[in-house]
C-alpha cells in the first residue's frame, strides 16, 4: 500500500471540509481546524490494483486576515485547491494561496471548483484557462451537497500517482 499526503487548501467557506466529510475516515473532530488549523482524515482507494492510502490534510481556509502554516505543506504529494463557483474571489485567492504554498512545496496541484449544484457566478476565461494549464495538473467540478464527482477527484489523484510509478 502506498501512502500519500494530500493537502486541501482554499479560502474560507469554499467547502473543503464539507467536500470530503462523507467520503473519508477520520477520528478527529473539526474543532482541530480552528485550533490547529488542520484536520487529518484518511481515504483508501485502489487504482489499477494498486492500493493507496491518502492522508488528507484539510487545512483551515485562509483569507486576507489569516495565513496558513506553510509547514503543513511539507512532503505533500498533491495539493487540492478548492474554489467556490459562486465567488469569483475564491479563484483569485486560490492562486494566491498556491503561490504561498509554492515556497514550501512544488507538489502538483488540482483545481477543484466546488458548489457545482449552484449557479456559477464566474466562468473560466481564456487567460484563466491558460493560467490553470500552467499551475494545475487538472480541474474538476464538484458538489459537496450532491456528492457529485467527489470520488472522481480521488480517482483522478490515484490515476496521477499510478502514472508516476
Amino acid at each position: 500500500m502506498i501512502q500519500k499526503k494530500i493537502c486541501m487548501l482554499g479560502s474560507s467557506a469554499v467547502g473543503k471540509t464539507s467536500l470530503v466529510r462523507h467520503y473519508v475516515d477520520g477520528i478527529f473532530s473539526e474543532k482541530y481546524l480552528t485550533t490547529l488549523g488542520v484536520k487529518i482524515d484518511k481515504k483508501n482507494i485502489t487504482i489499477e490494483d494498486q492500493a493507496f492510502q491518502f492522508m488528507l490534510w484539510d487545512i483551515e481556509g485562509t483569507d486576507q486576515y489569516s495565513g496558513f502554516q506553510p509547514r503543513y505543506m511539507r512532503g505533500a504529494a498533491v495539493l487540492i485547491l478548492v474554489t467556490d463557483c459562486t465567488r469569483p474571489q475564491s479563484y483569485l485567492d486560490s492562486l494566491d494561496i498556491l503561490r504561498q504554498a509554492r515556497k514550501e512545496t512544488d507538489a502538483p496541484a488540482i483545481l477543484v471548483i466546488n458548489k457545482s449544484d449552484l449557479k456559477a457566478e464566474w466562468k473560466l476565461e481564456h487567460q484563466q484557462l491558460f493560467d490553470i494549464e500552467k499551475e494545475f495538473i487538472g480541474t474538476i467540478y464538484t458538489s459537496a451537497k450532491t456528492g457529485e464527482s467527489v470520488e472522481t477527484l480521488f480517482e483522478l489523484i490515484g490515476d496521477y500517482f499510478v502514472t508516476q510509478y
Binding site: I27, K42, M55, R71, Y72
Partner: peptide, 15 residues
C-alpha cells in the same frame, strides 16, 4: 488509527 495519529502528531509538532 496509528496512521491518522502520526499525521496529526506531525501537524501538532509543526504547529
Amino acid at each position: 488509527d496509528a496512521d491518522l495519529m502520526s499525521s496529526m502528531l506531525t501537524a501538532i509538532t509543526d504547529f
